[in-house]
Design a protein around this nucleic acid. Structure first.
Lengths: 192, 192
DNA sequence: TATTATTCCAAGCACATGCTTAGAAATTGA
DNA sequence: TCAATTTCTAAGCATGTGCTTGGAATAATA
């Protein structure tokens, strides 16, 4: 009997994610959201409860988004050092010209909301736990394949890799391309 | 003839800096500022023009603050690798217990304001230019002292060091202490 | 001590914020 | 076709925002 929705929750959520990505949490108003999502405030609130909850959903969506768009090669069966290398180098080449330097939504959020909000802090931790596990698996593969010294401490290297990733998220905004490349190059030398 | 100020511009600016440091630019209201600075809105606007200009001054103040409080050892005459090492390790040990993980104001700002505001982007660049120059000098010293391989590319190493610093600013919020230490340890190995 | 320049205070301005609500529009199943 | 149930629209609510203003309080000068 009921009337059916004219929009997809998942689709408008992705649009919301992009707004938050560009403007941050506080910098994004509900008016901006309703414009970009293409639905009314009422619909936003009935679908996502409130602004913060919408943002939490956007953060989860971002994790999915990043996994399918950037981490895919690292999740393949035989992924090893070559894939790690490509992944880091992609961080610099994917910054094509006019596209805005949005950086990483999670890093931006960690900076903006810090530890102020426990729900968001939790989501940030989930994000990095996931990435860390993925890195660990790839490093294990690389070790097995003999691409790394036998006595390599995988856990330490994972921390290093993660730290470098986070550094790149900031450096992508503040460094010139040449310097960013050098940073990544030396980081890769360290792992190998 | 005129009545004299009852507050010091420099002193209230430092207080403003701390508020921005904790809550970010958008997250800080003028009402919060007048409370923490201990002066009226009128005085804020007559001394600093407007909120954004106050923030720009706070960013500059932050640079001074960081230089005198954290970079001091690196600016000394004979500073070499040992000082670089201590500096990075300080980033983790200075995170004492209850003190909030505020991270780096400049990194937080880069995340929040990104490239949206050109004036602020300029100030961010100034900050990192300063740090990069300082790192370069110390690396040069270290090279001269024979603490680094003779063929070391100082410029590349400076980019690496800066990238690691930025990584630490994020990792300090998202990693456990042990992992952060490992990250720094391997980064230092790379430089040496 | 009277004058004068300036600081301070409180109130208020116009607008933006997150969120709610009442009623019209619409689409499903009977 | 009609009733039921949900979605959509637009207006509005209380509060917060950055910023301004008019007048009282103040202190240095003459």
């Amino acid at each position: 009997m009921p009337r059916s929705k004219t929009y997809s929750d998942d689709l408008v959520l992705e649009k919301a994610m992009n707004v938050f990505w560009v403007h941050g949490y506080e910098g994004t108003s509900v008016r901006m959201l309703e414009k970009e999502m293409g639905i009314n405030q009422f619909s936003i609130y009935s679908s996502f409860k409130n602004k913060k909850n919408l943002f939490l959903n956007a953060l989860r969506k971002y994790r999915e988004f990043v996994i399918t768009n950037r981490f895919q090669p690292l999740l393949q069966e035989g992924a090893g050092f070559a894939e790690l290398e490509k992944f880091l180098l992609n961080s610099v080449t994917s910054k094509k010209g006019k596209e805005e330097k949005k950086g990483c939504l999670v890093v931006n959020t960690a900076g903006e909301m810090g530890e102020h909000d426990p729900d968001i802090a939790l989501e940030i931790n989930r994000y990095y736990d996931f990435i860390r596990n993925m890195i660990l698996k790839v490093l294990q593969n690389a070790l097995r394949k003999g691409e790394l010294p036998i006595n390599t401490d995988i856990e330490k290297q994972a921390s290093f890799f993660l730290g470098v990733m986070q550094g790149i998220s900031v450096a992508g905004k503040t460094m010139e391309k040449r310097q960013l490349k050098d940073f990544i190059g030396l980081a890769l030398d360290q792992i190998r």
